[in-house]
């Protein structure tokens, strides 16, 4: 197994090459606005650091979000196109699961990332012997609207940094690391799980159909 893993759902544009045992090489840069410019050079840098040719890759894993749409799509289309070009499988991983993997927390905790518009993407996890299990489906909403007993848990991701009053027990990591995307993908593949590459948008596009606009006018 020679897996290229990448994620663009948080502020990190992160790439890693993983051989099933360990990360052979990686490249991560923090820039929430320049995915288009930085991801492709990041891939070539990570491959070079690992001493791996693109033709040697056997698998690709990509974080499918949730995350801000524009950056998220850059990672997804890159993974899908590269996989098609090389004729290798592409596996989708929930990006919050990768953050949970990086947290290394035992017991219950919360992953909350920046969803912009004063909201967070979040899900609750339980760590046992270094393996986090997701207890709830990822959702988007205001940090203050998360149930109080959940908000009191330890938090990883930028959510706690942005909303410390609602999420007081924040810690690292703040962003996804591609090495963790690879780990989560490999564990799921070993368990025989399907890993479809479906973006987790969790929000509808911001637009009203002509029919909805008409209905709104009639209601007013």
């Amino acid at each position: 197994m020679l897996m290229l893993a990448l994620d663009t759902s948080t502020s990190a544009i992160t790439v890693a090459v993983h051989d099933g045992e360990t990360v052979l090489g990686d490249h991560t840069v923090l820039d929430a606005r320049r995915h288009t410019e930085l991801l492709a050079p990041g891939i070539t840098t990570a491959l070079a650091a690992a001493g791996v040719a693109v033709t040697d890759l056997t698998d690709i894993a990509v974080g499918v979000g949730p995350g801000p749409f524009t950056g998220l799509r850059v990672g997804l289309v890159t993974a899908l196109t590269l996989g098609h070009t090389r004729g290798i499988a592409v596996h989708g991983v929930c990006s919050l699961d990768a953050l949970a993997q990086g947290a290394g927390i035992e017991g219950d905790f919360l992953v909350a990332t920046d969803a912009r518009r004063k909201e967070v993407y979040w899900a609750r996890y339980r760590g046992e012997s270094g393996v986090p299990t997701r207890l709830s489906e990822p959702v988007v909403g205001r940090a203050a609207d998360i149930p109080a007993e959940v908000r009191a848990l330890p938090v990883v991701g930028r959510g706690a940094l942005l909303y410390p009053e609602a999420l007081p027990d924040g810690g690292e990591p703040l962003d996804v690391y591609a090495g963790d995307v690879a780990l989560v993908a490999q564990r799921a593949l070993e368990a025989g799980e399907a890993l479809p590459v479906e973006p987790m948008y969790l929000r509808r596009p911001d637009a009203l159909t002509t029919a909805e606009r008409q209905a709104a006018v009639e209601r007013a």
């Binding site: 995915h35 288009t36 492709a40 891939i43 693109v54 524009t70 799509r73 890159t78 196109t81 070009t85």
Partner: peptide, 20 residues
């Protein structure tokens, strides 16, 4: 459209990397 352009540009770069 910025977000639309980014999908094509990222895909083109992946082709460039994958095919050399």
């Amino acid at each position: 459209l910025a977000g639309a352009l980014m999908v094509g540009v990222a895909s083109a770069k992946a082709l460039g990397i994958g095919l050399g």
